[in-house]
Design a binder for these strands. Structure first.
Lengths: 403, 403
DNA sequence: ACCGATTTTTTCGAGCCTCGAAAAAAATAA
DNA sequence: TTATTTTTTTCGAGGCTCGAAAAAATCGGT
C-alpha cells in the first residue's frame, strides 16, 4: 500500500499547492489562492509569507490593474522569474533546439543548431546536447533543471532515449551524460507526451483531463491524457498509436513490421502510395516538406492516386482512433504537425472509419483541432514539466534559496 | 489543481492506511504496521487503540502461533468480522448471485437464482436485485454497502449499467433502485474490472500494478490495471478490447459493427466459423457450454474447420493484445472464463499474431495464466472493492460504530 | 476632509496530529 | 530470580491548520 502521511509532508504538499495555484493563474491574490486550494486564510498567509521570504514568490504591488472595488484591494502574487532557470532541449531529426526559461516560464534565449543526427555516434549526440546547454546557459544564474524532449521512445523514468527514428543507436543515456556534465537533475521525455502537456497548459478548457494529441509527421505519434494523468507505459513512454496494427499482414512500416497505422498514414507511406510504389517498398528516412505540400495540392485538385493515398491514410488514422476510443472513452483530439496541412483531405475518411468503430459511436461529436507547429509545443511542454517538477521537489520542500 | 491537505484529513488517511495494511496482511502486529506504513510506533499505537475502541479492529491474543522468540511477543491485530456486512450481487446472463460478506471478507451466505434476463423489463431486473438482497441479508446485522457486478458496460461513477448483452434495456439504474430500497451506498461495476481486482487480491506477486485480465466467453471482455489503478474510461467502464477492430469491414459482431475482435474470438464467432456459416450470419445470443466443449474436442482431434476457427480466434486476440501493448507496455496476462478450456489450441496463434506487433517485441516473455471460473472472481473483486470503499469512507473517517 | 462600510490580510490562541525518547509490559535465557 | 530482549504505551515537544478577532487599506457618501 501507499505510505502514510507524515506531519512535515503536509506542509510540503500545501506549499506546492500554493506555488502551482499561482503558476496556473499567473498572478493570484492570497484570497484567490484560498479559494482554489480550499485551505484557510491563515494558512495561505503563512505559506505565502514564507515563499516571499525565500524569494520564490513576490508581491506585485506597483502594477495596479485595480478593479476599483470597495474594500482593501487584493495584492497580486506571482512567481519570481529569477528564482531559478531551466534549460529546455528539443532534439528532432537533424535539429537540436536549446532554450533558457526562467522560473515563470518566460523564454529568455533560444538557439537552434542543425546536425546530421543519423550519422552521429552515441557520444556525439550527447556532446551536442552538452555543448548546446553550455552555450545557452552561459553566464546565467543557477540552472536548476534540464528538460529534454526527443522524437521517439523514452524510458518511463525519464533517463534514456530507448529508440528514435533520428538515430540508429538505442538506449542513449542522455540524462546521465547531462547530469554528470552539469550536476543538475535532467529528465528526458517523449515529444508527443510533451505536446499533450503543452496543450493542457495552453487550452485548459478544451484539453484538461482527457484528450488525445496526435502528431502527423513522417511517423505518427500520440500523447494521451487520461483522468488527468499522462498516459505512459510501465517501462517506456508508450502510447505508440502509429504502431498499432491497422491491417494484419499489410504494408511495410518503418519499424520493420507489417500493417502498422504509420505504414499507411506516415508521410513516407502517403508518398509511397501516391507515387504508385509497392506497399512493401522500403520506407524513406526523410522527406522534404515541399514534397508533401505538392502531394497535398495534387490531392486537393483531382481524385487521383494522391487523393487516394490520403484517403487511405485517413482510414488508418480513423480506425486507430476508434480502437483507442474502445479502450478509453471518446475525448477531444488535437492534430499536430506538418501533416495537418492536409487535414481537410484526411478528415472525411478519418470520420468515416471512426464511425465504423465502437469508439465512434458518437463519431459526429468527436471534435478535432489542428496545430501545424509542433516544435514550440514540445518546448513549452518540456518547460512546464520541468517547472512543475521544481515546484514539487525543489521549492515545495522549503529549500532555502542560494541567493 | 488538487485541493490542499487539511489537518483532519491527515488522520483520516492514516487511519485508512492502518486499516488497509491489516486487511492486506490478514493479521498484523502494531510493529508490522509501523513498517508497512512508515508511520511511527506512537502513531500506530494511538490509531490502533482508537480502531479497537470503535470495534473496527481487535486483538487476537488467544490464538497463539507464537514464534517463541525472545522479547515481548507481538500481538496480532485483525479486522473485526462483525464491524459490518456487505452484500455482493453478480448478474450475468440468466443468473443472479447474491452473497453476504463480513467485514473481513468471509463469505457468510450465498444464493443463486436463475432468471430469463433477456425477457425481463427494466423494473423486473431491478426488483430481482432488490429481492435477492432482501433475502440474503434477512435478519443480519447492519448492511453497509451493496456491490453489484454485471456483465456489460457500466458508467464510471458506478451508478448504472449502460449496456449489457443480457438485456435489451440501456442505462438500467440499479444503484438508484437499490439505494432507495435499502438506504445504503451501492456501487455497480463491470465484471472484467472486478475480475482484475480479484486477481490482484489473490496473487499480488503476479498481478500487481500492471496486468491484463481477458475474459474469453460468449463475448470478449477485459479488465486492465495500469500503474496500480483500474483503467476505465472517463464516462464508462471502458476497456472494450473485444470491440477493437481487428479486420476493417470484416465479420459481423454482436454489437452490429464489422470486424471487431469479438466477431472472431467470441464463442458465437468460433461456432459460426466452425459450422461453416457466413461471417455475416447473425450472432446467436447464447450457447451451451457443451457445444463449445464439443468444438474444442473436435479442434484438438483434427485440423478441420473447428481448429481453423480457433486459429482465427487466436489471431484476433493476439493482434488485440499486441495493439494494447503498443499503448501500454507488455504485462502479465490472465485468461479467464469458459473459453480458456481451449487455450492450448488458441495459444500458438495468439503468440504468432502477437509476434507480428510492436507490443509483441518480446512475445516469448509474455506470460499467460488461465482460470476457467469467472463468477467467483467477479464476486471476490466486488467484495474487495466494496470493503476498500468502507475502509476509506466509512471506517477511515472515524465513524462511531452503531453497536 | 472625515467617518463608516467593506474587503483583504495578518495575528493569535486553540486544538490536533505525529514524532522521538523514555517508560512500561511481557516474554525468554541464564 | 534476575538480566535481556522485544513490543507497546505514555508523555512532552514541535508543527501545522483553523477560526476569530484585529489590523490594514481602500471606497462612498456627507
Amino acid at each position: 500500500m501507499t505510505a502514510g502521511i507524515r506531519h512535515d509532508e503536509m506542509r510540503k504538499r500545501n506549499r506546492t499547492m500554493v506555488i502551482s495555484a499561482v503558476r496556473q493563474a499567473g498572478r493570484a491574490s492570497r484570497t484567490e489562492i484560498t479559494r482554489s486550494t480550499g485551505l484557510s486564510h491563515s494558512t495561505i498567509s503563512a505559506i505565502a509569507a514564507d515563499l516571499i521570504d525565500e524569494g520564490i514568490m513576490r508581491e506585485l504591488r506597483d502594477e495596479e490593474t485595480a478593479p476599483a472595488r470597495r474594500g482593501r484591494p487584493q495584492v497580486a502574487l506571482s512567481l519570481s522569474p529569477d528564482a531559478g532557470c531551466i534549460v529546455v532541449l528539443v532534439l528532432i531529426f537533424n535539429r537540436l533546439t536549446a532554450s533558457l526559461v526562467d522560473y515563470c516560464g518566460n523564454k529568455k534565449r533560444e538557439k537552434t543548431i542543425r546536425l546530421q543526427t543519423l550519422e552521429m555516434s552515441r557520444q556525439e549526440l550527447c556532446e551536442a546536447a552538452i555543448s548546446a546547454v553550455r552555450e545557452i546557459a552561459g553566464g546565467e544564474g543557477p540552472i536548476l533543471h534540464i528538460s529534454f524532449g526527443v522524437q521517439g521512445l523514452t524510458d518511463s523514468a525519464g533517463r534514456e532515449m530507448l529508440w528514435s527514428p533520428i538515430t540508429v543507436h538505442r538506449n542513449v543515456a542522455f540524462a546521465e551524460a547531462l547530469e554528470s556534465a552539469f550536476g543538475v537533475p535532467v529528465s528526458i521525455n517523449n515529444d508527443c507526451n510533451l505536446i499533450a502537456l503543452a496543450l493542457r497548459w495552453r487550452k485548459p478548457d478544451r484539453y484538461r483531463d482527457n484528450f488525445v494529441a496526435i502528431l502527423l509527421s513522417h511517423g505518427i505519434g500520440m500523447g494521451l491524457m487520461v483522468d488527468g494523468r499522462m498516459f505512459t507505459g510501465k517501462d517506456s513512454s508508450g502510447g505508440e498509436l502509429g504502431h498499432m496494427t491497422y491491417m494484419p499482414g499489410g504494408a511495410l512500416c518503418r519499424c520493420g513490421r507489417l500493417g502498422c497505422v504509420e505504414a499507411y498514414a506516415g508521410n513516407y507511406a502517403i508518398w509511397r502510395k501516391a507515387t504508385g510504389q509497392s506497399p512493401m517498398a522500403k520506407p524513406v528516412t526523410d522527406m522534404r516538406a515541399a514534397e508533401m505540400e505538392r502531394l497535398t495540392a495534387e490531392a486537393r485538385e483531382e481524385d487521383g492516386p494522391a487523393r487516394q493515398a490520403f484517403r487511405e491514410a485517413g482510414e488508418a488514422i480513423g480506425y486507430a482512433i476508434g480502437n483507442l476510443f474502445a479502450l478509453i472513452d471518446p475525448a477531444p483530439i488535437a492534430m499536430i504537425g506538418q501533416g495537418t496541412a492536409a487535414f481537410d483531405i484526411l478528415e472525411p475518411s478519418i470520420r468515416h472509419a471512426l464511425a465504423q468503430t465502437l469508439g465512434g459511436q458518437n463519431a459526429q461529436v468527436i471534435s478535432f483541432e489542428t496545430e501545424p507547429e509542433e516544435t514550440p509545443l514540445i518546448a513549452e511542454g518540456s518547460a512546464m514539466l520541468a517547472l512543475a517538477e521544481l515546484d514539487r521537489k525543489h521549492f515545495g520542500a522549503g529549500a532555502a534559496l542560494p541567493a
